[in-house]
């Protein structure tokens, strides 16, 4: 499938700031499930830093924007040729071993409720991962606005509501609790309904013999040709496609517009 992405993020500062530094994971890496046809990132008045693929196999690039400025726009446009690999991440070059993805983070620390949810009977790791993903989908109702960017997996469980980020973090916490390496994945998704989010997130769980396999509890499926994978991390914050800091006071107002569409060939 040919997928076109147009992703515009705008930060507006209440007062001019002296400068902004950002670290981007906004360029998809090539693997069997996705081939980059065309991709570009622009930052208004930004100077690009060195670009490299990190140990997780994700493209990272730093940007600096000189001030004074009161607004920045980051625009991602591109086209990716995707294929359905049944959720299996194949042909993705990375050097961090799966064991490193067992470490928990404050946002993915399992509490009693998550441990109870993880107590599913499944001898086979793949069966276990599917069962956990289904259990998370059952336990957390999709409801935008019920949570925020810093909501932890345990808080999500208590609320019983959340968005894709929350589903992914609860699944990661449960999988790691079962001794399975797991990570958070940020990307895009081609959506047919209003419900799903175009700027999307899901989880990957490491399965012996298969490697990394994606699970998307929010949509009760494994990633297929509708998904574009940007980058991964131990939790949502660690995997954030954009991390940035401004030199100056005040919180920026954020505006995000994402359009993901399939292109007729």
């Amino acid at each position: 499938m040919l997928i076109a992405v147009d992703h515009l993020t705008t930060w507006r500062y209440p007062a001019p700031v002296r400068g902004v530094v950002q670290s981007h994971r906004l360029r998809p890496a090539q693997h069997d499930g996705q081939k980059i046809v065309d991709w570009g990132v622009t930052v208004t008045d930004g100077t690009p830093g060195g670009s490299f693929r990190d140990g997780a196999g994700d493209w990272v690039q730093g940007w600096t924007i000189r001030g004074p400025l009161s607004e920045i726009a980051v625009r991602v446009t591109g086209m990716v040729e995707t294929a359905d690999t049944a959720g299996i991440l194949r042909g993705h070059r990375e050097s961090i071993p799966p064991e490193a993805w067992l470490r928990e983070t404050p946002a993915t620390r399992p509490d009693a409720a998550i441990r109870a949810l993880a107590a599913v009977a499944a001898a086979d790791p793949l069966d276990l991962a599917h069962a956990l993903s289904a259990a998370v989908a059952d336990a957390i109702a999709w409801e935008p606005g019920a949570t925020h960017a810093a909501t932890t997996a345990a808080e999500t469980m208590a609320a019983g509501r959340g968005v894709c980020q929350d589903h992914a973090q609860v699944l990661i916490a449960a999988a790691r609790h079962c001794g399975r390496p797991a990570r958070y994945v940020a990307g895009y998704m081609l959506t047919a309904t209003e419900k799903a989010e175009a700027a999307h997130a899901w989880a990957e769980i490491h399965i012996p013999g298969l490697g990394w396999v994606g699970f998307d509890p929010a949509n009760r499926c494994c990633p297929d040709a509708r998904y574009v994978r940007l980058g991964s991390g131990r939790d949502a914050q660690d995997a954030a496609p954009v991390r940035g800091i401004a030199r100056g006071p005040g919180e920026a107002a954020l505006d995000v517009a994402v359009a993901v569409r399939s292109v007729q060939q």
């Binding site: 140990g55 997780a56 990375e94 961090i96 064991e99 490193a100 067992l102 470490r103």
Partner: peptide, 18 residues
């Protein structure tokens, strides 16, 4: 043991592969 290395608090995945 892999655990001692990769689950070590001081293991920093940001420098893996660099």
């Amino acid at each position: 043991p892999a655990r001692l290395v990769y689950q070590n608090e001081a293991y920093e995945k940001a420098v893996a592969g660099i």
